[in-house]
Write a protein that binds this DNA or RNA. Structure first.
Lengths: 213, 213
DNA sequence: TAGATTGTTAATCGATTAACAATC
DNA sequence: TAGATTGTTAATCGATTAACAATC
């Protein structure tokens, strides 16, 4: 076994790590230096063994009887998720949602940096939204190539998503954060993370229908 | 077995149903009247048996050798998800994201109707955003009670989420669509659907780190 | 008819949860 | 020390995938 081998961690684990990070940051702010999995689990309504396994996957080790050092966990989780290195991104689609994401200060916390936005509406091109300029979509390839941008955020209309994704991939984008409702067809080395509001709403509506049909 | 018993369908199935609905709507628009699970599966990159099981959970039946009627599936899925009845919602937090959701025309498709927004910033109160008025948060309980609103959308800052959620639940809200990063502590009869951008970003960043460490 | 397709049961896979020795 | 906690292995649970009879 190569020690430097990249551990491919299960998706459910990855999805829980930010919640641990947030809770731990709040605990550190209150002066807490040490914490047990039992404690984290009860705060977040999870199983303690699951928390222990999740934390183990980041490589941080705890001490029997004592627990984990809060600081170790915070840096360990952030390192593991790549949140200690800046990630540059470009955004396509300067509509309501695109603008909301461009203005979201919370991304600084994860060191995600949206460099610029692109749109095909002449009305929007040239404007600056939250300090970030909106360019014509034709200028996307050049900027992505020059700055080696690896993340593309898609907030275009669903019908345009596949073609804009293709342009992004062609330009060197290696990961797409897809906020549209399109199922994207991409080469297997390209990562797609889909934030699907209709999927989320489907769960909400159905659960509501189940309790009061 | 009570025929009218509410079928509790697994969450992964619910999350896939909107993608089927979208694909089927596009097929109907192109004049297609009949479709097989094999076809749906290949279009969406899924397993045909999985599609068949998912569709079965909505109660729609197909015909061996023929397939499913596109119209039957469209109405069956929409009925099953409660998308043929209007659902009223209120939104708390008229920031960037809240405004984006208020202006999102796509919700009409799911018959989700955001009646009004609430905020505690005097600057925002009284304004109308995309034809919907912003009221002081104090006015939320009265409106929710009078109109029997069942869905509450949370786009407030994370620190405010738990207390605003409590007010909503107190007022009669039965389902929360949580766009904040808070883990909400709610009574067991209240539904929480969490759209967690940090969880999504964690998957994206880590997968990117795995391919180029 | 023959073969594609449905509906359903069985097998597999992966994630969660339980059990427990090691430890401070 | 005794008991709480970690780290890890085993058992369970649930979702996906495979197999196959029924059907048009």
């Amino acid at each position: 076994m190569d020690e430097r081998a990249i551990r491919v961690v299960a998706e459910p684990t990855l999805r829980r790590l930010p919640a641990y990070h947030r809770l731990l940051a709040a605990m550190r702010a209150r002066g807490r230096t040490v914490v047990s999995c039992t404690r984290i689990a009860s705060e977040l309504g999870l199983d303690a063994t699951q928390v222990r396994k999740d934390l183990a996957s980041t490589g941080v080790v705890g001490r029997p009887k004592i627990g984990f050092a809060v600081d170790d966990l915070l840096t360990g989780i952030a390192d593991f998720l790549g949140w200690n290195n800046r990630s540059d991104a470009v955004l396509a689609g300067a509509g309501h949602l695109g603008m909301a994401l461009m203005g979201y200060r919370g991304f600084e916390h994860y060191r995600l940096n949206i460099l610029a936005a692109f749109d095909c509406d002449p009305e929007k091109i040239g404007r600056a939204i939250h300090g970030k300029e909106v360019f014509a979509v034709e200028k996307l390839p050049d900027l992505v190539q020059r700055l080696h941008v690896s993340i593309g955020i898609l907030t275009v209309p669903t019908q345009a998503a596949q073609s804009v994704a293709a342009v992004m991939i062609q330009s060197g984008i290696r990961a797409l954060w897809n906020f549209t409702q399109a199922h994207l067809d991409v080469p297997e080395n390209v990562i797609v993370e889909h934030v699907d509001l209709s999927a989320s709403l489907a769960v909400l509506s159905r659960r509501l229908a189940e309790v009061s049909p």
